[in-house]
């Protein structure tokens, strides 16, 4: 993958992030996301740029960058696929999905699959921890968008569609953008896609559906005692 240099526009945006906070250093996490969106990973150049703007040492920035798992020293694919293998998803099939994808892509954890002739995009693979979607298990993330209720077959279909450049949408989110584009959103620069996708996925609505059917609601406020009873 290409590593474009950090130009003035990016330096300005890095300063803009730092300026959102009462103390500039608070901007470091989103600033590192911006570095990844421009360069595809955390580079020495990106570390130095952040350090210079925040007036701290590159070693300090590096110490932060290595602490958090979303920062990558080695590049990832255009589409970074994460399979949840925390207990609940693992048991529900996440382990089988991860094995199948490793086998299919012929790579290990945290590696980029070979770009075959005819592939227009690249994918990388990682096993991830609980992504707060357990009611949609087994869960896969692509560029940190939800791909709910996967099977080994559906997961292979997704990665093949991505490699061949087909449009793929999150199961309860937008059309998938590239990893670098997603990193820009994390840096706090919205991409205008908030209105894509549904309000909620099916599982999220499970209880609400029953309440609607049975006419169940929270208590009527007009029937609540006006004054607190005091405990």
């Amino acid at each position: 993958m290409s590593t474009p240099p950090i130009l003035d526009k990016t330096l300005d945006e890095l300063r803009e992030i730092a300026a959102r906070y009462p103390e500039p250093r608070s901007g470091l996490l989103p600033m590192l996301h911006l570095v990844q969106s421009v360069q595809g990973r955390i580079t020495p150049e990106g570390i130095e740029a952040c350090a210079a703007i925040l007036d701290i040492s590159p070693a300090e920035v590096s110490g932060v960058a290595t602490f958090y798992t979303m920062y990558k020293r080695h590049g990832v694919g255009d589409y970074h696929v994460g399979v949840c293998t925390n207990t609940l998803c693992a048991v529900m099939g996440g382990d089988a999905i991860f094995e199948r994808l490793k086998d299919h892509l012929d790579i290990g954890n945290d590696e980029v699959a070979v770009q075959r002739q005819g592939d227009s995009k690249t994918v990388s693979l990682e096993h991830i921890e609980c992504n707060a979607a357990c009611d949609f298990a087994p869960v896969m993330m692509v560029n940190w968008e939800f791909m709910d209720n996967q099977t080994p077959d559906s997961a292979v279909q997704v990665v093949e569609a991505l490699r061949s450049g087909h449009e793929v949408s999150s199961t309860r989110g937008p059309k998938l953008c590239t990893w670098r584009e997603a990193e820009r959103v994390l840096a706090g620069f919205p991409d205008g896609r908030a209105d894509e996708g549904p309000t909620a996925g099916e599982a999220s609505l499970a209880g609400l559906r029953i309440a609607r059917e049975r006419g169940w609601t929270a208590p009527d406020p007009s029937e609540a005692p006006a004054k607190e009873t005091g405990q």
Partner: peptide, 20 residues
Amino acid sequence: MTDQLTPVLTETWDVEQGWK
């Protein structure tokens, strides 16, 4: 008697573009 389910925070999740 309070109902068994009491949607308050989840109440708008089935609303079209409920996030707006």
